[in-house]
Amino acid sequence: MLQRFRENKSMQGTFLALPTTLWLFVLLIIPLFLTMVVSFGQRSPDGDVIYSFSFDNYARLFGYSTDCPDGQASCFDSLYVNILSRSLTLAFNTTLIVILLAYPLAYFIARSHPNRRNMFLFMVLIPLWTNFVIRVYAWMMLLRKEGAINIVIGWVMNLLNIPYTPLEMLYTPGAVLVGMVYEFLPFMILPIYTSLEKIDNSLYEAAADLGANAFRTFLRITLPLSMPGVVAGTILVFIPVMGTFIVSDILGGRQVILVGNLIQRQFLDARDPTFGSAASLILMVMTLIVTYFYTRKFGFGEEIIAA
């Protein structure tokens, strides 16, 4: 028996994969299955789950409503569709802005003197040592009507003798966008930096030697070779932004509700786990679809993950 095991590579492989498979099963497959089961159920009047097989929750998410103003039996309610599309748009915008901000910074760090690189990277990482929620609250302090930003602008305007009414910045979609960009910036900087840093200096010299100026070297050599970092960063940023609810909760208030907030409220405030589960699954499917098409076009950024 033992002898057979020693000689059989595929048996060894199965054996070695066993613990991982077990964890995956316990921590992912079973919870996912339960979520699915619950999402097909219905909420009882006192907030319990009635197990059934109905698509009502999904229909509701995509706008089917029986609560219609002029006595119709059913009508279209855009509330949840709007939340879904708002989340998707915000995730796209956040990812795009984060790429635009992170790339030059990562480039700067990668091309700076080796002695200083570690210090810059350290500075990128410092904010991550503070709790996520506390950092979002810090933005609240900056953005609110009596916040630091308004105080400074007001002070300057006062000096210039221009009348100034403090800007309403908090509880706007803009505030949520700023918060998201801030929170997820390091997750884009690091993979892009890694891929840029791996580009050998002789490649830049070779490009120059063959007649390419700095701009064309960047377009033809630097950018393509750093794409794995951009792809890896995009995956690291897009997926969490789609699901997070803390930033929109604190900086968006009741004005900016995302899928994450919807799910959280269904489970905690509305006590409707069936609808919350349906929303969770839809969020997951949406994220998977976007990631699928994205990675099919650009790959997974394997080189970065491997490094």
Binding site: D200, A206, R220
Partner: peptide
Amino acid sequence: PPFQRKVNTVFQSYALFQHMTVFQNIAF
């Protein structure tokens, strides 16, 4: 600058562009 000199270099590490084919490397 190097890109305005009529000299070309063969590097010790070859410095080939890994994201390009042989043809693209030479055509660059």
